[in-house]
Design a binder for these strands. Sequence first.
DNA 1: CTCCCTTGCTAACAGTGTTAGCCTGAAATT
DNA 2: AATTTCAGGCTAACACTGTTAGCAAGGGAG
Lengths: 167, 167
Amino acid sequence: MANTNGPTRERISVIAYELLKEKGIAGLSMRALADRLHIKAPSLYKHVADKEEIIAGLQARGLQEFGNAIKRAGKSKRAKALAYRKWALENPHLYEITVSIPLLRDRIPVGLEDGVTRMIIEITGKDHEHARAVWALMHGLVDLEIAGRFPKDADLELTWKRAVAMI
Amino acid sequence: MANTNGPTRERISVIAYELLKEKGIAGLSMRALADRLHIKAPSLYKHVADKEEIIAGLQARGLQEFGNAIKRAGKSKRAKALAYRKWALENPHLYEITVSIPLLRDRIPVGLEDGVTRMIIEITGKDHEHARAVWALMHGLVDLEIAGRFPKDADLELTWKRAVAMI
DNA sequence: CTCCCTTGCTAACAGTGTTAGCCTGAAATT
DNA sequence: AATTTCAGGCTAACACTGTTAGCAAGGGAG
C-alpha cells in the first residue's frame, strides 16, 4: 500500500513513546504498538531490527527529557533534587525504562548517558564518589516510592528534606 | 504415581529458590521449574495456585535471609551498611525479586516486611524520615551497581565510605 | 473389593517476540 | 510506454510464556 505517511522509524518511536507513557513497560508489546500504527506486528520489522531497538530509542528519549528537566531546574541542590523527584514521579514508566532496566548502551547515542551522569555529578560540586552517593540517594528514594515500598502514611516531603540535608 | 517424596509445596519452593539463584528472574519459568522436579508444568498447579504464589514465597525467603544477614552484622552503622551491600551483591536475584519488583504483600507472612523495615530504621537510631533516606541511599547504591550504572573504573568502596559518612 | 481422591499426564488457548515467504502498488529504468 | 525493482504491507508459523480442561492411574479408606 505504501501509505504516504506510513510508519517510518520516527513514527514508530513516537507512538511507542505514547504507548509506554500510557500503558507502561508491560503494555508495550509489538502487537499493541502495531495496532496503533494500523499495521500488523510483523510489518514493524520492516522498519526496526527488533524490540530492543525500540526500547533503546525510548531510553534515549527518556534520558534526554530527564536531563532537560533537571537542567531547567534552579541551580541549588535542593531545586535539582526536587526536580529529579518531580520528573520521575510524573514519568514513572519513562524513569523505569531508562533507569530500572539495563541500559542498552550500544544502541543509544554516545554521550547521552555521560551527559546526564555528569549533570547529576555537578549537582554536588564535590568529587565523583560523593556525587555517586547523592545520585544513589535520589534514585533509591524515587525507586522505593514508585515501588510502593514506603508506608502510606510516610511523610516523603520530609524524607526528601532530610535527604537533601544529608547531601 | 503419588511419589512419596513428590513435589510438595515445600519442595517446589526450595527448587524455585535454587532456580532463581542460578538463572535469575527471567529463568524462573513454570516449565523450567517443573523440569527440575521431573514433572510437567501443568502438574505444578496441583500444588500451587499460580506463579505469583511461588514468587511470594521467594520474596518471603529473601526478606528472611536478608534480615538475618543484617542482624548478624556488627552493630555499627558502617557494619550494617556494608552487610547490606554484601548480601545484595552476593544474592542479586534474590535482592531483585524482593525489592525491585512489586512486593506481594497479601501473600507473604504478615510482619515480615515490617520486621526488615524496622531493622533498617534502627540502624540510624534517628527518626523514620531520616531512616528512610538512609535506606534509599543503600538501596540506590546497590540497585545502580547491580544495574551496571556506575562506570567500570568507579571506586565503589570509596563511594560507600562517603555514603556511610553521610548517614 | 470398591470407591475416591491425589497427583500425574496431554492437549489446548491466549499471549509474547520473531522469521519466512508472498503480494501489490509505486517508483525507476530502458 | 513497458518493464523491472523494491519498499512495505500481509498471513502463517515457530518457540516461548502462564494457565485451564479433562483424562488416567495408583494408593488409601470404607
